[in-house]
Simulated assay, not measured.
Amino acid sequence: MSFPKDGFRMTLLNLQHLEAIERLQDRVAAHLERVDQLQKLTHDEIRIILHQELFAGVWIDDQLVAARAFLYTPEDEEHLAKDVGIHVDEWKDVIYSEISLVDPSYQGHGLQKKMGAWWMERLQTSPYRYVCATVAPFNIPSMKDKFQLGMSIGALKVKYGGKLRYIFVRDLQQTREVTELQAVPMADTEMQQQLLARGARGVGLLEQDGAWLVQYTIVD
Rank of each mutant, 00 (worst) to 15 (best):
D145A: 14
Q173T: 05
A187M: 09
L195C: 01
G199D: 07
D145V: 00
G210H: 02
A211W: 03
R165L: 06
L149W: 03
T189C: 13
P141A: 03
I153E: 02
G210C: 02
F168P: 03
Q192D: 09
K159D: 01
G202N: 01
G202R: 02
Q182M: 15
K157Q: 11
Q194T: 13
S152N: 09
L156G: 03
S152M: 11
R176A: 12
K146P: 07
Q173P: 00
A155R: 10
L205A: 07
G210L: 01
A187E: 15
V184D: 00
R176L: 15
A200S: 15
Q192S: 13
R176P: 01
G154L: 07
D188G: 01
K163A: 09
G202A: 08
D171W: 02
T179V: 10
M186A: 08
L196A: 04
L196R: 02
M143E: 12
L172S: 05
G161W: 07
S152R: 07
E177L: 12
L205V: 10
S142K: 03
S142L: 03
M186K: 00
L164K: 07
P141Y: 04
L195E: 01
F168S: 03
K146F: 04
K159V: 05
M151A: 02
G162C: 05
T189A: 09
A183Q: 13
Q182K: 15
E180R: 14
A211I: 09
E190T: 12
R165P: 08
G199F: 09
Q148E: 11
V158P: 00
L206F: 04
L172P: 00
S142G: 06
L206V: 12
T189N: 05
Y166G: 00
D209S: 11
Q182I: 15
L181H: 06
A200F: 05
G204V: 06
Q182C: 14
A155N: 15
A183V: 13
I153N: 01
V158F: 14
L172R: 11
R198A: 13
D145M: 13
K163M: 09
A155K: 10
R170D: 03
M191F: 02
V169M: 12
D171G: 06
R198K: 14
A211Y: 08
I167D: 02
E207H: 04
K144C: 09
T189L: 09
G202T: 04
Q182N: 09
D171H: 02
K144Y: 05
K144P: 00
S142H: 04
Q174N: 10
K163S: 08
T175A: 11
M151L: 09
T175V: 14
G202S: 07
P141K: 05
R198P: 01
R198H: 13
R170V: 11
S142V: 04
L205C: 08
Y160D: 12
E207V: 12
M191E: 11
V203K: 05
D171A: 07
F168D: 04
M151D: 01
G162H: 10
V184I: 15
T179S: 14
A197Y: 00
A197L: 08
Q193G: 08
Y166K: 00
R165M: 08
K163D: 06
Q193I: 07
D209I: 01
G210Y: 01
V169D: 00
A183E: 14
P185Q: 05
D188L: 04
P185C: 06
